[in-house]
């Protein structure tokens, strides 16, 4: 393993971690809303969030490129207001990973929250607890296994993301190259042995995340 390889592995892990942290608060809040609220907009919101699961990742990347490019609505505003560019920077990597792994977190968190008996939340209300306290002391602790599993699943997904990342962030060595993108590049260059080495690291990381997730999901005896 060369110095560049380690740099790529470290960068990928950092980006996956960052994107998971970024989506956690809004993702869990959204899951809570989908699980508990009685609103007509629910089906539409759920479909929108889930789209990246079924759309070609390249298409997701293209949509992000349009929205966050220098001429896109968000990209333009960010550039004018804060002087911040997104596309083809590490920010685009984090953004692509976040959008691609959000549905996995939301789905897992939603079903975990749905399994929490609403009668327990109601009891907490009668004991004087407001919404926030009920959420943090009852709902969240009781849904913790499903939430942990969903978090690890989202993290694993972010580690392996390719299509959206390369579309919106490109492949700039040392700046936006992730593990998955690097594997693709090595194959293109005919460096099969190098590609396999990186693939092994990727596989090990994915395996560890999923295995941990399973352990969290298993109930204590």
């Amino acid at each position: 393993m060369s110095h560049e390889d380690w740099q790529i592995i470290g960068f990928s892990a950092r980006m996956a971690l960052l994107s998971t942290l970024l989506i956690w608060p809004p993702g869990v809040a959204l899951a809570w809303w989908l699980a508990r609220a009685q609103s007509r907009g629910k089906a539409l919101v759920e479909t929108l969030v889930s789209l990246p699961l079924v759309m070609p990742p390249v298409l997701t990347g293209l949509v992000l490129l349009e929205l966050f490019g220098r001429n896109g609505p968000f990209g333009h505003w960010l550039h004018e207001r804060f002087g911040v560019d997104v596309v083809f920077t590490w920010r685009a990597v984090a953004l692509a990973l976040a959008v691609m792994s959000l549905p996995l977190l939301v789905w897992a968190a939603k079903s975990a929250i749905e399994e929490v008996n609403p009668a327990l939340e109601q009891m907490a209300h009668t004991l004087g607890a407001g919404r926030w306290r009920v959420f943090f002391t009852i709902t969240l602790p009781l849904a913790r296994r499903g939430l942990a599993a969903g978090t690890l699943l989202a993290f694993a997904r972010a580690l392996g993301e390719f299509g959206a990342t390369i579309t919106v962030a490109g492949n700039i060595p040392g700046r936006t190259t992730t593990l998955a993108v690097s594997i693709y590049e090595q194959i293109q260059l005919g460096h099969d042995v190098h590609a396999w080495r990186l693939a092994g690291v990727s596989l090990a990381l994915a395996f560890a995340a999923l295995w941990l997730g399973r352990r969290f999901q298993r109930k204590r005896p």
């Binding site: 327990l120 009891m123 907490a124 004991l127 009781l142």
Partner: peptide, 27 residues
């Protein structure tokens, strides 16, 4: 409900399963 100061004992008791007896009582 949280402002009524009503004590409620539901049929299945609905104790908080992740809290100890003391923490349930002190909630």
């Amino acid at each position: 409900a949280q402002s009524r100061q009503v004590g409620f004992v539901p049929q299945d008791y609905a104790l908080f399963p992740h809290l100890t007896v003391a923490a349930n009582i002190a909630y």
